[in-house]
Design a protein around this nucleic acid. Structure first.
Lengths: 267, 267
DNA sequence: GGCACCTGTGAAAATGGTGTGAACGCAGGC
DNA sequence: GCCTGCGTTCACACCATTTTCACAGGTGCC
């Protein structure tokens, strides 16, 4: 489903010969490359929206281990591949234990390097291929992965691709609270930059479209400070309960916005 | 949390020397090993509950590729690692593209083989680790990390994120007295400023919410001059005495002054 | 019992997260 | 090239949560 999502690969190496050859092949394969010749801070990698990074630690000197440790620690979802010259078993073991996804020895064929980058990246993305195929029904909603679309009473919600993928992920994890970072990582495929609001915006779009076709259900619930949870609930009951439990509610301050049909849950 | 979940590794190889050495080390590391000297059907691997399988395809003859393809296709969540003698770049690339997680060349150090198996397995697991940790039950209370929420008899305590994290930490260290500084460091993530009362305030909020849903239990105990301890205790004796001495006291909303249901313990 | 110091408590003040509309930039189709 | 649809970014309003503060009540020690 997300097979040929292009890979954004960072390369940290000074071996211009190797990098040039690799770049040519990667470009041919439709990958996006970013190059650097020294340590790149984790935050910058996030900003570059990398899926994977290929590092030759030998150019980093003494800080190599510390750097690898930091990157793997801070960005556990980034695929880190080491590609360097001779190394001892102990070094390779140490690297792999640290969180490096693969350790390639130079000289190596660029095709193999790419295949290994792909293999590691592939691993990272897995997790939604499981039920991939089966349509999913929740409340009045039917999510059909085979159509990249969701329906209510046979009518399409007219979701765009991202909207669909977000809804699919949520519906697949019905009842579970998903953090924004998790959502972003799984739908967008790379780490979420701090302060990114894309997830919120798409949630709003989904809510609008859901509301339009299925007004009497609340599907997406906000968990303040955490993220969102998909859980279809007939909206009617809930509202009545709230009304019943509420005293007359005198405060008719001009609530510019009428109540959300989605319930915000503290958590 | 889930770091040292033991790995169940299948080994398909006839190289008894290699397998023996590997087995010894794997056992020492607490892994579970299953061995075979020929192709094992996917279904059998499922039955063996393997996390990963280490294969030398050279012993499978002509069917090697077909077999690898089948295994990777049918069990996309199984970590498949190839460990074999000399091979060409093309073969390795083909294998990796097929879905093999890593391709190791013999002879190889068993420690490195294990590290690589671990690395591949680690990646496969990521993504559904959402469960982070199983729900935690204490007294009438159920703490559910996957929901960022705690429940009593199925009803949510409506904890905010920090409240939840504090409760989670406490419940995780049941019976242990935690100092304020420790609590702050672990929940807030940085050192507590001298004189900060946040922990106390949150403890109060937790007690209120616990009291509301589970009135007959005392969960959080104060250790004067030290910190707090989580330990669910039926509040029986103490409570009854208090109630007996008290007039019926209907549920007034403003119970501004009411005895703590928590017991202060002299440390 | 008195004093110094902790802890509990309620509410005000500060912080920060979320909903929302709209502008922007980019790419694909006409 | 222009139009259109989509994804991203921004600014602002609103409000839930967190922090802070002042004071009341408890606890331990001399």
């Amino acid at each position: 489903m997300n097979p040929q999502q292009t890979i954004r690969l960072g390369v940290i190496d000074t071996d211009s010969g190797f990098v040039t050859v690799l770049a040519k092949r990667a470009e041919a394969a439709g990958w996006q490359l970013r190059q650097a010749t020294g340590a790149v801070p984790a935050q910058e990698m996030v900003a570059m929206k990398l899926n994977a990074v290929l590092i030759d630690p030998s150019i980093l000197g003494d800080e190599a281990w510390e750097y690898l440790d930091r990157i793997c620690g801070e960005l556990p979802d980034l695929a880190v591949i080491v590609c360097t010259g001779r190394s001892t078993v102990a070094q390779r073991v140490r690297g792999l234990r640290l969180g490096v996804g693969d350790w390639i020895t130079k000289p190596c064929h660029p095709e193999e390097a790419m295949a290994r980058v792909e293999a590691v990246t592939r691993r990272r993305r897995r997790g939604r291929n499981e039920a991939e195929a089966g349509p999913l029904v929740s409340g009045e909603l039917e999510v059909r992965p085979d159509q990249f679309q969701a329906f209510v009473a046979g009518e399409s919600l007219d979701l765009t691709r991202r909207e669909f993928e977000l809804l699919h992920l949520l519906a697949d994890s019905k009842g579970q609270v998903l953090e924004r970072e998790t959502i972003y990582q799984r739908v967008w495929g790379y780490a979420m930059a701090h302060g990114d609001r894309s997830v919120d915006v798409f949630i709003r779009k989904l809510r609008q479209k859901l509301e339009k076709r299925s007004p009497s259900w609340a599907y997406i619930h906000t968990h303040f400070g955490v993220g969102y949870r998909f859980d279809p609930e007939p909206a009617g009951i809930l509202k009545e309960e709230i009304r019943a439990a509420d005293p007359p509610a005198p405060e008719f301050t001009d609530r510019s916005q009428q109540l959300h049909d989605e319930v915000t849950v503290t958590s």
